[in-house]
Simulated assay, not measured.
Amino acid sequence: MTPFEQAQLDVKTLTRKPGVPELLQLYALYKQGSLGDVQGDRPRGFDLAGGAKFDAWAALSGTPPEQAQEEYVALVMKLRAAELSVMD
């Protein structure tokens, strides 16, 4: 299992839901690391969450998937470490 795949499992075990900025960053890094540059059209109308997710992913355009995977793993590790420090 790659570190990226392990981080995908680890993020599901977080006991506290990350804030919106972290959730958008996780989403964008996951998509960039899995699929590469943003695909499709930006959601319109009242799909505010879809638009925010699209924009976060689009902001990473040009980032190599390997780099996005490394950043995703680092962010998950940071979120897990923050949880552990709160428990101490």
Rank of each mutant, 00 (worst) to 15 (best):
1 M>N: 01
1 M>S: 04
1 M>L: 05
2 T>Y: 08
3 P>F: 10
5 E>H: 14
7 A>W: 08
8 Q>Y: 02
9 L>Y: 10
9 L>W: 13
9 L>H: 07
10 D>L: 14
12 K>M: 15
12 K>D: 15
13 T>D: 08
15 T>Y: 13
15 T>P: 00
16 R>H: 12
16 R>V: 10
16 R>Q: 13
16 R>W: 05
17 K>E: 03
17 K>Y: 01
17 K>S: 12
18 P>M: 10
19 G>V: 02
19 G>L: 07
20 V>W: 14
21 P>D: 04
22 E>P: 02
24 L>S: 05
24 L>T: 05
25 Q>Y: 07
25 Q>M: 12
25 Q>R: 15
26 L>A: 08
26 L>P: 00
29 L>I: 03
30 Y>K: 11
30 Y>I: 00
30 Y>L: 03
33 G>D: 04
34 S>F: 07
35 L>G: 00
35 L>E: 04
36 G>L: 13
37 D>Q: 01
38 V>Q: 12
39 Q>M: 09
39 Q>H: 12
39 Q>F: 12
39 Q>C: 08
41 D>T: 14
41 D>I: 14
41 D>V: 11
45 G>S: 02
45 G>T: 05
46 F>N: 06
46 F>H: 04
47 D>C: 01
48 L>D: 00
48 L>H: 09
48 L>G: 04
49 A>T: 13
50 G>R: 08
50 G>H: 06
51 G>A: 13
52 A>Y: 02
52 A>I: 00
53 K>W: 14
53 K>M: 14
54 F>I: 05
55 D>T: 13
55 D>A: 11
56 A>P: 01
56 A>Q: 01
56 A>Y: 07
57 W>P: 09
58 A>V: 00
59 A>C: 09
60 L>R: 07
62 G>T: 05
62 G>H: 09
66 E>R: 00
66 E>M: 01
68 A>E: 10
68 A>N: 12
68 A>D: 07
69 Q>E: 10
70 E>T: 02
70 E>M: 06
72 Y>P: 00
72 Y>W: 03
75 L>E: 03
75 L>S: 07
75 L>Q: 06
76 V>I: 09
76 V>H: 09
77 M>E: 04
78 K>C: 12
80 R>C: 06
80 R>V: 09
81 A>Y: 06
81 A>F: 10
81 A>E: 13
83 E>D: 10
83 E>R: 07
86 V>W: 11
86 V>R: 11
88 D>G: 11
88 D>F: 15
88 D>I: 14
